[in-house]
């Protein structure tokens, strides 16, 4: 598969107003990420991992610098365009509270497709295929509160993957899981990365994740401290 740059950050800074003053969280990040990478942003709590992921995912705007994601300049996107970028090309997985409690597993995954103009049948096929990837087809009609933590995260992966996005952003997806479930999920994502070529970008400080990553970007005090690549 031909490698192309899908994320490019140049002198990215982000300040948050705290008590009337600007508090810098990201202080000049330069990064370039290619398609089909399986990589993690690693750093202690409060180092700005979530902030960086949210900016890349167009949920937040940078204070300064250039952020180019899938050939879109994040800074110049309006709400609608940003939403559309997320809707079609970016999947999100969070640490907790991934699922809407009143909807079934099937509906939670289907939700991601409702904004796209697909037929019911297309949606159904896509959802079932995504559930198959994560091995949850027989749980399709369960409510989230009937699932284990590992199963919930797998549903979240299915929801992120159901629209076949180019990029999946996973913010500490294993933080609330035991070792067995964490490994199962990482294997699943790795498999999807290999088979579908989807780029996975993690934020983590979980040791278990490290071994799976092809590339580790260490974040400290708002700057990239180290950027280690391994061949996969």
């Amino acid at each position: 598969m031909k490698k192309e740059t899908i994320i490019k950050l140049k002198n990215l800074t982000k300040n948050y107003p705290v008590a009337g003053r600007d508090f810098p969280v990201l202080k000049g990040i330069n990064l370039s990420i290619n398609s089909s990478e399986f990589l993690g942003i690693i750093g202690p709590s409060g180092s700005g991992k979530t902030t960086l992921l949210n900016i890349i995912g167009s949920l937040d705007k940078p204070t300064n610098g250039e952020v180019n994601v899938l050939n879109k300049e994040i800074k110049s996107l309006n709400h609608k365009d940003a939403a559309e970028l997320r809707n079609f090309h970016i999947g999100f997985i969070f640490q907790v509270f991934n699922l809407l409690p009143v909807y079934t597993v099937f509906e939670n995954v289907e939700f991601a497709l409702l904004l796209q103009k697909n037929t019911t049948k297309q949606r159904k096929n896509a959802v079932m295929e995504a559930l198959e990837w994560v091995g949850l087809t027989e749980h399709a009609n369960k409510k989230p509160d009937k699932l284990s933590g590992g199963e919930s995260q797998r549903v979240a992966i299915a929801r992120a993957m159901v629209k076949s996005p180019k990029l999946v952003l996973a913010d500490e997806p294993t933080a609330n899981l035991d070792a067995e479930n964490a490994h199962a999920i990482l294997k699943t994502m790795k498999k999807l990365n290999k088979e579908l070529g989807t780029t996975f970008l993690f934020s983590t400080h979980d040791e278990k994740v490290m071994g799976y990553l092809d590339r580790k970007i260490f974040l400290r005090d708002g700057i990239v401290e180290k950027d280690e690549k391994y061949k996969s």
Partner: peptide, 13 residues
């Protein structure tokens, strides 16, 4: 709302 925003729903929607 957070999940829906992340999924790609716009605020106006």
């Amino acid at each position: 709302f957070g999940i829906r925003l992340a999924i790609g729903e716009s605020k106006s929607n």
